[in-house]
């Protein structure tokens, strides 16, 4: 049995921290990578976050919202902490943390830590598997597509998104 209760994902992106922050928190970007869909986020402690579904997700039977959350800490462009719930599972919220550190060379390190001790089904989905075409990519794929978008300008939303 694989223990997925705490997942750590790291990636280097050739972009300033501010742009990565924008990409995580504005719909202009979130529709161009990962699973797509608008994001609504109030960037202050206690603020609400909603990641809306795409038409493709709706056609698969999902409602209007894919992810709901509460902002625990927002320190742009360095740190974003959320209580994060997947709408497709009835499980307790998990803790999602983004740490964004810009290096001297202009290369930025994004470390995402997802703690889901009480959300095993969500944990399995976000860990990702080989079935990217059917939406199984999870965080590794989502972060790879974020890097591709910011470094090449090429939108990358497949995976059951469009």
């Amino acid at each position: 049995m694989t223990d997925l209760s705490k997942q750590v994902h790291g990636i280097y992106i050739d972009a300033p921290a501010e742009r990565i922050w924008e990409a995580l928190t504005s719909s202009e970007y979130t529709n161009q990578y990962g699973y797509g869909g608008d994001v609504e986020i109030e960037l202050t402690a206690g603020g609400a976050m909603r990641h809306l579904t795409t038409d493709q997700m709706k056609s698969m039977g999902m409602g209007d919202v894919a992810i709901t959350g509460t902002v625990v800490e927002a320190d742009p462009p360095k740190r974003l902490v959320l209580d994060w719930s997947a709408a497709w599972h009835d499980e307790p919220p998990s803790r999602l943390t983004y740490d964004i550190v810009e290096g001297p060379s202009g290369l930025t390190r994004v470390t995402m830590t997802h703690e889901l001790p009480e959300s095993p089904q969500t944990a399995m989905d976000v860990a990702g598997n080989a079935d990217v075409e059917n939406g199984g990519g999870g965080w590794p794929w989502e972060l790879s597509s974020l890097k591709t978008l910011l470094e090449t300008g090429k939108p990358m939303t497949t995976a059951g998104a469009q």
Binding site: K6, V8, G128, P140
Partner: peptide
């Protein structure tokens, strides 16, 4: 911790 992002790449 295992970082599977480079493996994805």
């Amino acid at each position: 911790y295992l970082n599977s992002v480079p493996i994805r790449a």
